[in-house]
Computed example of a mutant assay.
Amino acid sequence: MAQHAEAFFAQSYAEARTKFLAAAEAAGLDVESRAHPLLGREGEALALDVLRQGPARGRAERLLILSSACHGVEGFAGSGIQCGLLADPQWLAAVRASGVCVLYLHGLNPHGFSWWRRVTQEGVDLNRNFVDFHQRPLPANPGYEELASALLPRQWPPSAENEARLSDYIARHGRAAWQQAVSGGQYTQELGLFYGGHAPTWSHITLRHVLEEHLAGVRELAWIDLHTGLGPCGHGERIYTGQDTGESLARARQWWGAGVTSLSEGNSSSAPLVGLMWSIVEPVFAQVAPGARYTGMALEFGTVPLDEMILALRADHWLEAHPEAPPEQVLAIKRQIRDAFYIDTPAWKAQLLAQASEAAHQTLAGLNSGSPFSSSPT
């Protein structure tokens, strides 16, 4: 199983995209590509590639989105999963039999995927970028403001005194408060971690256009967004992504199991976050699919311990602010950031593909469960 899974994963964005396009062709499916304005680290073209399997636009009442690379470098895992599903005859047959439309979004943030960064070309965490930028002030994060200069010091690696500041914050506020301060999202430090931006990014705008085109006429939407970086290595945490309503969370647990976690309940490996991508669903529904119902999750696969992952992010953001860094340090930091979000072993990849396949099949069953459609999005 591990050797079989290995074939679907890649060592670069260019290779991952090539494998995805080949998998689509082998499955007899067409890909629609939204070209990115910049080139990748190998000089390759970048794009959000959209593959639709099942009923044509406007003819699908039930639709499942499987998306990868919201956080760039996490796309190594998500792309491998998408390619594995497209090569699985049982999955393809199950989709055909279900009548459900499956929309594969490969490379939501292709620039970060190619350049081994978590953020977009604008330096933005795409999963913090979905706030109303017309409203002021933008969400505040005083904890991050306090920690900003310690998280990204002038010199790298950080000094013992610098790390002591972070330890002191944890001692005073606790690890949960520290994680939320660091990762919850911030809108003031443009070179900082988990920066939500000052306007919608290219990926944000492009995703919205794709959804507006493909969700027309849909009455029931499920969305599995593939992530890595949190939790025990190889374990796929099913994190509910939706409004804090009992009905929709109960439905998620009916489909995907009682182990589905929730940010609002505080039982997830993730801290509470702002500007999340799933929040785009309701305004799109209002425009092209009024009355549709949504059920979503982030399928989060563990890699390395949290402190190690945050350290890799800090190093990568420091590097972006210090282009004068020597070549050997550049290479070390880039390898560090990729290794924090992609465990390049056959066993890890097999774990991911098996768990994602199970979740995808469960979603088809949920969409076909015959439950009545709600009168409004939840």
Rank of each mutant, 00 (worst) to 15 (best):
D132H: 08
A148Q: 15
S68M: 03
A97S: 14
N127H: 05
A140M: 05
I65Q: 00
N368M: 04
G28N: 08
E320C: 07
L63M: 09
P37D: 08
T363D: 03
N368A: 08
G80Y: 01
L151S: 12
R165P: 06
R118H: 12
G296I: 02
E328Q: 09
G246A: 15
H235Y: 13
D125A: 06
L64E: 02
F285W: 11
D344L: 01
P157W: 01
T245N: 08
V260I: 04
T345D: 05
L353W: 02
F133S: 04
G370V: 04
T201A: 11
S375E: 08
D49I: 09
S159M: 06
E163R: 13
G80D: 03
P55L: 03
R41G: 05
E300P: 14
H227L: 06
L66S: 04
L151E: 07
L191Y: 14
L48T: 13
S269K: 02
L38V: 11
I310C: 07
I343R: 14
S357N: 10
L263V: 07
H71G: 11
A359P: 10
R57K: 02
G217A: 01
L138H: 15
N127L: 00
L103E: 04
P137Y: 09
Y187K: 01
A325H: 03
A347L: 15
P323C: 03
S183N: 08
L66Q: 08
R219Q: 15
G99R: 12
R41C: 13
A94G: 06
L38I: 05
L63P: 04
V260Q: 07
D316T: 03
A16T: 08
E324W: 00
H36A: 03
A181R: 12
Q82F: 01
I310G: 13
P326M: 00
L63Y: 00
L103V: 14
R208G: 13
L191K: 12
S357R: 15
A87N: 15
G72D: 10
L39V: 14
E44M: 10
Q90W: 02
E237K: 02
A5F: 02
A7T: 14
W255I: 13
L193V: 07
G259L: 00
P323Y: 06
E328G: 01
R335W: 01
L126T: 08
E324D: 14
L103C: 10
